[in-house]
């Protein structure tokens, strides 16, 4: 038990140090620094929301379209950037492997965590700014909204845990990533609610962890305006299985890492 708590103490220390280092190298210390991490998702969410409101009008099924798109797009940019940053994460950091207490997994946790915090801040700023002009609702149930976001983050982490070792093994992965995250959009729940879909399509979406997590976030945000369909157990089970696979792959790969 003491070995476990000692390990926990060391790993939290390492991840904290890695996060500070990552923020320094990525954003520097000058200017608004790491607030830039919010800029990209907010721009995406705002502009895509704007385009949609021109095409579809200001509301869809009683839900404001800008709020709807924004609430979907910010988590999606989190997923995409976390996945992109897990690619070759070990190679990029291999100089730090000289310090024995830094584990491969620490790199993945650090990057996913930073992206997650960035997305959460972007969400809050976006909602706050649009909320002032009445384009974003006050969350009907913040607890459910946060739970949905954490579920989305859990799935993102589990994908990244597989991707980090996989991208070291195969060059092809890097090439396939952009198209894969693009193809994934219909299964991410970003642009739809499950109640808008036909029962057969909905049955497929219920197997998609991000679609389920997004549905839960929308329920927390829009409350009664949403008639939610989601499957919590499949989301948790799929994420857990992916995470196990990722952890086993990382462990096996560690033996063969050649540190430059």
């Amino acid at each position: 038990m003491s070995a476990l708590s000692e390990g926990w103490r060391i790993q939290t220390r390492v991840i904290g140090a890695l996060m500070i280092r990552e923020l320094n190298t990525r954003f520097g210390r000058d200017n608004i620094g790491f607030l830039w991490i919010c800029a990209e998702p907010m721009l995406f969410a705002g502009l895509v929301g704007l385009v949609w409101s021109f095409i579809r009008g200001p509301e869809e099924n009683g839900i404001g379209i800008v709020a709807f798109i924004g609430s979907g797009y910010i988590p999606l940019t989190f997923f995409r950037s976390a996945v992109g940053r897990s690619n070759k994460v070990v190679e990029a950091n291999s100089g730090l492997m000289y310090h024995r207490q830094i584990k491969m997994l620490d790199f993945v946790f650090t990057r996913v965590f930073i992206e997650m915090i960035g997305a959460m801040m972007a969400y809050v700023f976006f909602a706050g700014a649009l909320g002032l002009v009445g384009l974003f609702p006050i969350p009907a149930n913040p607890g459910i909204l946060i739970a949905g976001f954490l579920l989305y983050a859990l799935f993102t982490l589990s994908v990244c845990l597989i991707l980090a070792p996989l991208s070291e093994l195969s060059e092809v992965i890097e090439k396939l990533l952009p198209v894969t995250t693009y193809i994934m959009i219909p299964f991410s729940g970003t642009f739809q609610l499950n109640s808008w879909l036909s029962p057969s399509v909905r049955a497929v979406e219920l197997w998609s962890p991000p679609a389920n997590a997004m549905e839960i976030m929308r329920l927390g945000l829009f409350g009664d305006k949403v008639h939610p369909y989601y499957d919590l157990s499949s989301t948790l089970a799929i994420s857990a299985v992916l995470m196990m696979i990722g952890l086993i792959m990382s462990r096996r790969m560690r033996r063969d890492i050649v540190v430059a």
Partner: peptide, 29 residues
């Protein structure tokens, strides 16, 4: 045991000497 003191490894080139020292101080508590 120290990390291997070698010609490369253990540091991040884009960070300053002080920042690398801060990082190493943090991870070794």
């Amino acid at each position: 045991m120290s990390w291997p003191l070698a010609l490369d490894g253990g540091f991040q080139g884009s960070l300053t000497g002080y920042d690398n020292a801060r990082f190493i101080a943090r991870i070794y508590g």
